[in-house]
Amino acid sequence: MAKLRYQGYCECEPTKLVREKFGNANVYAQNAQSLLTKATGFISAYDFTLNPYRGCQYGCSYCYAAAFSPNSKMQQDWGNWVILKENAATILAKELQKWYKKNPQQPPRIYMSSVTDPYQPLESQYQLTRSLLEMMLDVRNDGYPTPTLVIQTRSPIITRDIDYLQRFQRLRINMSIPTGSESVRRDFEPRSPSIKARLNAIYLIKKNIDAFKGYIPKISITITPLLPTLDTDEIAFIEQLKIADRVVIQDFHPSHNRSLIASTRSAADKIKQKYAWWYDCEQSSYAKFKSQLLAQLVGVEIKEGKDGFGYE
């Protein structure tokens, strides 16, 4: 298959034109050959990863997923383009059918998503993620168990889908909140939702799903990568984490210059210089924050790195 050339990111005639501009992002559309990708490495506890989009509007400075961009120009412009997998629901239906034909009573374990945010802003318009949730729930009509699903996001848009979320018997929602300080968030991920908006989303989910309305999802707050939280914010932030049944912490991915390797972007390394008081003693800063979590969050599971990203 010929390599696709995206308008704005190639010097010759493009094969993919910009469909529209959504905020700062060029939006492209294409059909996916497959949707469920065999899970390996950090999330090998799952059968598959599922990414409705390629690219992410949030464009966080540290995001390792930029390494998997279609080309080097798009990697450098991470956050300013998104590719819609237009046929996502159709492909997922076929792939689930194939799975259940071989494993009729064994639901697949799916991690959504590994290299994009399934609830980035344009999901409010295109609703690809919602269509995939619907497809996963439809397997019940054929007598199959619903997939085990973990949703990784930093977006309050997830609350739109409470009606679907409560129908998953085995669901964990991972809400990414890497810092408890808004000023730090604005430095490292200025396009992302506020800390308050993310916490409010979890409150809404817990408030609107009860045992009489559906299944109660497991809730994780993933402080990954662990960014600095100012001393003035730390105690109050950790107190708010009690809403979760699990808190996960992890330091930065190593930095690599090669493409197709999960690594922290150089943009984050520059911002880290502003927080030398934390990063000059990164190991002790990490240990101190972890000890505060353990002291304040009695009854909440505290996990680190890969160990924290499983469903159980």
Rank of each mutant, 00 (worst) to 15 (best):
Asn26Leu: 01
Lys38Met: 10
Val115Ala: 14
Lys290His: 14
Glu86Lys: 14
Ala29Ile: 15
Leu165Cys: 13
Met74Gly: 07
Arg198Cys: 10
Tyr215Val: 07
Ile235Leu: 13
Arg198Glu: 03
Thr179His: 03
Thr37Asn: 12
Met1Val: 10
Gln57Lys: 07
Tyr100Arg: 01
Leu96Trp: 00
Lys306Leu: 00
Glu11Arg: 14
Val115Tyr: 11
Ala262Glu: 06
Leu241Gln: 12
Ala276Gln: 14
Gln30Gly: 06
Pro178Arg: 05
Arg186Ala: 07
Ile43Gly: 00
Ile205Phe: 05
Leu84Val: 10
Leu4Ala: 12
Asp163Val: 05
Val27Arg: 04
Leu227Gln: 11
Lys102Gln: 13
Glu134Trp: 05
Tyr164Lys: 05
Cys56Gln: 04
Trp278Lys: 13
Lys16Glu: 14
Ala211Leu: 14
Thr222Glu: 11
Met112Trp: 00
Ile195His: 01
Arg185Trp: 01
Pro104Tyr: 06
Ile238Glu: 00
Glu123Leu: 09
Asp117Asn: 05
Lys306His: 07
Gly214Thr: 11
Ile243Leu: 06
Arg191Pro: 00
Tyr9Leu: 04
Ala287Met: 15
Asp138Trp: 05
Phe68Gln: 11
Pro147Phe: 02
Leu137Val: 05
Ile249Tyr: 01
Thr129Val: 05
Arg109Glu: 10
Ile151Gly: 00
Cys56Phe: 06
Ile249Ala: 02
Pro217Cys: 02
Ser114Cys: 13
Gln125Val: 09
Gln105Cys: 03
Gln169Ser: 08
Gln76Gly: 06
Phe237Tyr: 11
Val300Ser: 09
Met136Leu: 11
Thr49Ser: 15
Tyr126Leu: 07
Ile173Val: 13
Arg160Trp: 09
Glu234Asn: 02
Cys281Val: 09
Leu294Ala: 13
Ala32Val: 07
Pro14Glu: 03
Pro118Tyr: 04
Gln240Gly: 15
Gly41Arg: 12
Trp277Phe: 13
Thr49Arg: 05
Leu133Lys: 04
Ile235Phe: 10
Phe309Ser: 01
Arg109His: 11
Leu92Asn: 06
Tyr9Ser: 04
Gln97Glu: 15
Ala244His: 00
Glu282Phe: 03
Thr222Val: 14
Lys272Ser: 10
Asn103Met: 10
Gln250Tyr: 09
Phe188Gly: 08
Asp233Phe: 02
Gln97Phe: 06
Ser263Asn: 15
Asp231Val: 15
Gln292Met: 10
Lys242Phe: 04
Ala32Leu: 12
Glu95Tyr: 12
Trp81Gly: 08
Ala89Trp: 03
Gln105Lys: 12
Gln33Met: 07
Asp47Glu: 08
Ala287Trp: 05
